[in-house]
């Protein structure tokens, strides 16, 4: 089966360790969420997969072939990011044409329809479009390119609420109609948590979580109650954080809730809170 594998990837920039011994597998036709704080190593990892920069140690395999400087392997991956990689003088419709040149399965008709849906003027040049429109045309290409692997690096930067909503809908439509592996790298967990099947959390270059969204949500719970009751209940448990609200205290605990005494309310783990707690130094 097709997959992208990262084996023992490490990368250091001058004095900073960007990635340390990363081992990951991205399977066929699944949507992954790659979450991490700014500077955690998400973009470096994506750059390494797409041959934009080189790992110090380790290898990337796309369908079993090494990705480095390998046209055949790289033609299976398309990455959409905020990096300014298209020539500033080029018109968007020409960028679509060139995408078709390099990626044989690019669906031009679909791209033009999406441009209409997103109200994007494709006669504008790269340098003439706003940040949001810049994201839009790259998203349109990503949704039209039909490669087995798609990477979205901060896809909704600069998009207004309407376009964000439309983007996620189009993404799901595309995923169902023409399945592929999608990796969405973002720090906007709330938006993607319902869309992604698996979540990978990266902190300071190390993968700290790699499980399905469901498992992650079920991995813990929130216990709320008076200070006294909570402190007693939470004692000895795997606490990953706490919040104080007036005379009440909420504790975030990993594990399954057992023997919950009266006066303590158990609710599910908030994924956003879990992420913050896990990735705080």
């Amino acid at each position: 089966m097709g997959k992208i594998e990262l084996r023992g990837i490490s990368k250091t920039f001058k004095n900073t360790v960007a990635l340390k011994d990363v081992n990951l597998t991205f399977e066929e036709n699944k949507i992954y969420g790659l979450l991490g704080r700014n500077g955690a190593g998400k973009s470096t990892m994506i750059n390494i997969i797409t041959n934009c920069c080189f790992a110090d140690v380790g290898k990337v395999l796309i369908d079993g072939e090494t990705a480095v400087e390998n046209d055949n392997a790289l033609s299976k991956v398309y990455c959409m990011s905020e990096k300014k990689l298209y020539p500033y003088y080029m018109k968007i419709k020409d960028i679509f044409k060139w995408s078709k040149n390099f990626y044989k399965d690019f669906d031009m008709e679909y791209a033009l329809n999406l441009s209409k849906d997103f109200e994007l003027n494709i006669n504008k040049k790269v340098i003439e479009v706003s940040t949001g429109q810049s994201s839009l045309y790259k998203l349109i290409i990503a949704l039209s390119v039909n490669t087995p692997y798609l990477i979205f690096d901060e896809p909704v930067l600069g998009l207004d609420a309407n376009n964000r909503d439309l983007f996620y809908k189009k993404l799901l439509e595309k995923y169902i109609k023409k399945p592929c592996t999608m990796i969405i790298s973002t720090h906007l967990i709330e938006e993607v948590s319902n869309i992604v099947e698996d979540i990978i959390i990266i902190k300071d270059g190390i993968i700290i979580e790699n499980k399905s969204t469901e498992e992650l949500l079920n991995s813990g719970y929130t216990a709320t109650g008076s200070y006294e009751k909570i402190d007693k209940f939470a004692n000895g448990k795997n606490i990953i954080g706490e919040d104080k609200i007036g005379s009440m205290k909420s504790v975030y605990i990993l594990g399954k809730p057992e023997k919950v005494p009266d006066g303590i309310e158990i609710t599910k783990l908030d994924l956003q809170k879990l992420f913050i707690k896990l990735t705080n130094s």
């Binding site: 949507i31 909503d165 996620y168 809908k169 799901l172 439509e173 995923y175 169902i176 109609k177 319902n194 869309i195 992604v196 099947e197 969204t213």
Partner: peptide, 15 residues
């Protein structure tokens, strides 16, 4: 259909 539910509520079709 699954597609309609998925797109309408912005959830993964597997869900």
């Amino acid at each position: 259909s699954i597609t309609e539910f998925s797109v309408m509520y912005k959830i993964n079709p597997a869900t």
